[in-house]
Simulated scan of single mutants.
Amino acid sequence: MDRPRWLKLVFLISLLMLCHGRTNLAFKFKHQDYSHIYNQTLAKILAEYASAVYMTDLTELFTWTCSRCNDLTKGFEMIELIVDVQYCLQAFVGVAHDLNAIIIAFRGTQENSIQNWIEDLLWKQLDLNYPNISDAMVHRGFYFAYHNTTVRPVVVNAVKRTRKLYGKFPVMVTGHSMGGAMASFCALDLAVNFGIHNVQLMTFGQPRVGNAAFASYFTEHVPKTIRVTNGNDIVPHLPPYYSLFPQKTYHHFPREVWTHNIGIGTLVYMIEQICDGSGEDPSCSRSVSGDSITDHKKYLGIDMQADTWGSCRIVMDYSALQYQMDLAGNIVLSKDPVSPSIIQSITQEDNTRSNVQN
């Protein structure tokens, strides 16, 4: 056997041993009754939803005929699509009949959206006013992007209507980048403020959103949580974590699954490493320098960015869809006409937002 083939054989044997060890590690987590077990197939399904919400053609997205609206998400039933034009936010609520679950997806940071980048860079922390919690601080920009825009009242109403129609389906919330941060606040909101206990969160490349007290509170109320990180993706490293000030610094909640490549030459394989329950496992994404934007744009082989550079631009056939528009031009597309009370609550949110900013 020549030397190159011998080296490849040694590498493959080592890789199999590594994978075997990782399989045992995953089994160990399950045996010890950890709060959530990572499901690779479900991760890919939710990644496809997190990718689809980036689409700019609202007609194709709402009717689920877009180029990303197939494969593992085929047959999805859209209930509500929300577009906050003022802040370049987008989210949808619908039913995945193959999963018997309600899906909520939030769009992430838009590459050329000044509004989104301002929200991302507002790293100032805010006291979290939730029941039975103390010392919890959260990212001001991400918090307001969910709580003080058109998004929250429409999403909550859509979930209530869908559960009334289909029964108490579990709720799966997902998003990429800033969309992952908004998805986190949505999952916690549904669990704590609306008593929906079967809420599951899976995000991709999300930033840190709060301090250690918040991470602990979040884990208690949304235990079925997975944060997928990829390679050297820069965003999960932001805002920065300072190990010398663990109670004051931003702190991820668990459980992280770090995907990264190992190998040499043409023999490269993706590893999905299940991390510990701390939220800040030093052997996972924190073990590398978070300096890659490229690693942020694709997760599990799926594009996580807008389909056009004019990412805050929307395309819509206004004659073909039922929609409502508030005074600020924000759009709600609904399977059923949106009730006036919801449109009114959107207007009230706009007024509240203006008062907060002023």
Results as ranks from 00 to 15, higher is better:
Gln305Val: 13
Val222Thr: 02
Ser113Gln: 05
Arg208Thr: 10
Ile271Phe: 05
Phe76Ala: 07
His97Gly: 08
Leu99Met: 15
Val228Ala: 15
Val222Tyr: 01
Asp120Met: 12
Thr294Ala: 14
Ser354Phe: 02
Pro223His: 03
His296Gly: 04
Thr63Ala: 15
Phe27Thr: 09
Leu121Val: 00
Thr219Gln: 09
Gly180Asp: 02
Val338Arg: 03
Ser285Arg: 02
Ala136Val: 03
Gln200Leu: 13
Gly179Asp: 07
Glu119Pro: 03
Phe62Gln: 01
Arg68Val: 06
Ile103Arg: 07
Ser319His: 14
Asp326Tyr: 06
Trp258Glu: 10
Ala52His: 04
Tyr130Arg: 08
Leu42Met: 14
Phe169Val: 10
Ala105Met: 03
Arg313Asn: 11
Ala320Met: 09
Val192Thr: 13
Pro223Tyr: 04
Tyr130His: 06
Ile79Gly: 10
Trp258Val: 03
Ala52Cys: 15
Val171Ile: 15
Leu9Gly: 10
Ile226Phe: 04
Thr352Trp: 00
Pro246Ile: 06
Ile82Tyr: 01
Phe214Tyr: 13
Gly265Ala: 10
Leu121Arg: 13
Thr259Val: 11
Gly94Ser: 06
Met270Ala: 07
Asn129Leu: 12
Asn261Lys: 15
Tyr166Gly: 04
Phe204Ala: 00
Asp291Thr: 11
Lys8Val: 07
His139Glu: 05
Cys186Asp: 08
Ser319Arg: 05
Tyr250Ala: 02
Val315His: 10
Ser311Val: 00
Met182Ser: 08
Leu321Asn: 04
Val199Phe: 03
Ser51Pro: 11
Thr23Tyr: 06
Met178Leu: 15
Phe253Asp: 03
Ala47Arg: 08
Gly205Lys: 01
Val151His: 00
Val173Met: 11
Asp336Lys: 15
Ile262Val: 12
Tyr54Met: 01
Ile45Met: 07
Val159His: 00
Asn157Cys: 02
Asn198Ala: 07
Asn330Gln: 05
Thr308His: 07
Arg353Ala: 00
Gly205Ala: 05
Asn355Cys: 09
Met172Ile: 08
Pro4Val: 07
Arg140Thr: 06
Phe218Asn: 01
Glu272Ile: 04
Ala328Met: 07
Asp2His: 12
Ile264Gln: 13
Met182Cys: 04
Gln110Lys: 11
Val338Glu: 12
Tyr146Met: 06
Thr149Tyr: 00
Phe194Thr: 05
Pro131Asn: 11
Tyr241Ala: 01
Pro282His: 06
Asn39Glu: 14
